[in-house]
Structures are given as C-alpha cells and as structure tokens.
Write a protein that binds this DNA or RNA. Structure first.
Length: 327
RNA sequence: AGGCCUGUAGCUCAAUUGGCAGAGCGCCGGACUCCAAAUCCGAAGGUUGGGGGUUCAAGUCCUCCCGGGCCUGCCA
C-alpha cells in the first residue's frame, strides 16, 4: 500500500470545512493507504498562539480526529513535536532548499502581509512541511489547493537531496480536490476558515442552537433567479445537503429550486436536520472520548512510537549520507 | 552596537497650544425578508502597550520597561 502523510494544525476545534473537506477524506484513505496523520503543533507556533492551551488543543484535535473516524489501529496518529527528527530533517533540508524558492511561496506572502510580526519560522514553514512528509518517505499527500505549491517544493527538495547525496527520498504526489469545498455561510465567495471570522465557520462540535443560527443566517439570494442559475450561498447549502441527506431529499429540493418555488427556510431546516443527523454520532463519540482522556493520550503515545520507529530509521540513513550526527 | 520611527475600540485610523477619547468599517440587537443579503433604526465596545514622573489637567511632555518597523555596520 502506498504511504500517505497529512497534517493538521491544532488550532481549535474542527469546523465543517475541515471535516467535509479533509477529514472524511482522510478516513476513506485509510483503507487503501498506509496512512500517517500528524497533529502539527510545530507549525502552529509559527503564528500567534497561546502556549497555555496548545498542548491541550493538540490532544483535543486527536480526540476530534478519532471521533471523526481516524482509527489509531489503521493509521499512525501522533503529535509532530514528539518526534524530534522532524526538526533535524528540516535543518538538513534548509541546506538544500533555495532561498528564492521560499520567497515565492504565495502562502508566506499572504500570511506575512497580514501578520504584524513575521518570524523566520513562518518563512521556513514549507521546509518543515517537506521534512514532515519525507521523514516517512510518504509518496502521497492529500492537501488543499493552497498547499499544492508546498508539495511541489517538497518534490524539488527531495530531488535536490537525492542528486546531492544519493537516491533516497520519493517525490510525493499531491492528492487534491477529493474533499468537498465548504464555503463560509456568511460570505459564500470564501472558503470556510477559522482564521477569518469565527462567525462564519460552523464548528463540528458547536452546540446545536448555535449551528442552527448559523445555518439559518446563511447568505442566500433574493430568490428571483429561477432555473439553472444558483447563487454561491444556495449552492453551498446544496453541497451540505448532498453530503448529509438521502438522494431523494436532495432531488426534491433541486426540483423546487428549478421551478422557483423553493423556500430557503425549508432548505435551511433540511440542511440543519440532516447535518445534525450526520454529525451527531461523531459528536457523541467525542463526548465519550472526552471522559477518557488518558485513553486518548495512550493512543497518541502508541502513535508516537510507531512514527518514531520509522523516523529514526530514516534519519539514521540520512545522517550517514550527509555525514553528520550520531551514528 | 548605534540612530530614527511607531503602539489609541475587533480592524483602519482621527483627536488643535497639554483641555470632556472620536469616526468609518466590523460585531451585537431591532425593522424589512420565506431565510438571508442590501437598506434603515438602535446599542455595545477603551487601563490610549505597561510602570513611574511633570502639571490644576497627559493619548499628547519627561523617563524607564515591553512590543513592532526601518536605516547604519565603511575609513580611522
């Protein structure tokens, strides 16, 4: 089975964009791949964060992932900073990474424009990401569109390393666009994201009233456009409905929309009902896991050991090739 | 190491010579709407980065600290 790596930052709880966009995909990929899923706390500290809650958030992210269907038996699930080889490999990669390449990373340009303090770590972030992937010699990386550039950089780093020190790393392939693209309910032109306005991201574990408020207040349109045309807001609601409701339900609403007799409040109620139906098992499972936190910590400990056994072996090879470090 | 600039509401910024801390946007509530958006009405929101000092009075002046940005790093 091909080896697959992906990471997620422990910055608060999952929202519907994460869940339907990435995580449900991660769950499926477990079946046909050797999956390694990493909670990337070292990436999280490149932007403003709270040290007092980071560790807790990391464990909570693990809880959310397990509740969502990531199986610690099938997948290696662990916290990045617990395997120190990530950082060691990053440093080595720094020496084969082109400075000019890094300056061209659009995500860095975006983030550094917004941030009031731009750390060297933020700049070097894609190199750590390359180390994350290649430390396990993963050949596939499910990512969002915005991360493709980083995977391409990872490929260049692998190529450079291989030509300099000898064939060792694979050139990983990005897996893009398999997940759904959930848009913000308040601004359906933009992807749902927790960084922008919390208001527009619906948390997977958020309380029911609050989810209903957000679904109900989702942007639609004046309802005058009949037929094929569908505004982005309405299309987004249909996306959510498709992900959660039976086909017949979706078809019914589609018909109504085509004929111009769809009441959006009905659509919103259906989205809410079906959404809750779909995610309530996940929510229940999370509640159970929360009661037994130490069990989750044990699972993470196990994940760390599995990750480490791959990482230390590969790093030993790398050190040998590069000519540094303890043998 | 030295020099210069800077910090005011969630965001962008204003505040005369030292004289009641404000606006726009956003957020929240209401009207309108099948629900929203737009629009209208309303409300909340501040230790002016922090401490000390001068003064009747400090966002404003002095001082120290914290944070951020820029310039210099040459010859002797």
């Amino acid at each position: 089975m091909p080896k697959l790596f992906s990471g997620i930052q422990p910055t608060g709880e999952l929202h519907l964009g994460n869940y339907f966009g990435a995580i449900t995909n991660w769950v499926e990929l477990q079946e046909e791949h050797e999956t390694i899923y990493c909670i990337v706390d070292l990436h999280a500290i490149t932007s403003d964060y709270d040290p007092d809650t980071l560790r807790e958030n990391s464990v909570e992210m693990a809880i959310d992932l397990i509740a969502s269907g990531i199986d610690p038996e099938k997948s290696v699930l662990f916290i990045q900073s617990e395997v120190r080889e990530h950082v060691e490999l990053q440093w080595i990669f720094n020496t084969v990474t082109s400075y000019g390449d890094l300056t061209r990373m659009t995500q860095f340009k975006d983030k550094s424009e917004k941030a009031d303090f731009v750390s060297a770590g933020l700049f070097d972030y894609p190199v750590l990401q390359a180390a994350d992937i290649l430390l396990y010699k993963a050949s596939r990386v499910p990512v969002g569109e915005d991360q493709v550039q980083h995977v391409e950089l990872t490929r260049r780093i692998a190529r450079k390393f291989n030509s300099r020190f000898g064939e060792f790393f694979p050139e990983p392939e990005p897996i893009v666009g398999r997940g759904a693209r959930i848009m913000s309910t308040a601004d359906p032109e933009r992807k749902m994201s927790k960084s922008d306005h919390e208001k527009h991201a619906i948390g997977l574990m958020e309380d029911e009233d609050s989810i209903w408020e957000k679904v109900k207040s989702a942007v639609t349109d004046p309802g005058e456009s009949k037929g094929e045309e569908m505004s982005p807001g309405v299309a987004n609601l249909f996306t959510l409905l498709e992900l959660t409701a039976p086909k017949s339900t979706v078809e019914g609403f589609r018909e109504d929309h085509k004929e111009g007799k769809l009441m959006y409040i009905d659509l919103k109620e259906a989205v809410y009902e079906n959404l809750m139906g779909k995610i309530s098992p996940v929510r229940k499972k999370k509640r159970k896991l929360m009661e037994n936190r130490s069990h989750v910590e044990d699972l993470l400990e196990g994940g760390k050991e599995k990750a480490r056994s791959i990482a230390t072996g590969n790093m030993q090879e790398v050190r040998k090739m590069v000519g540094v470090g303890p043998r």
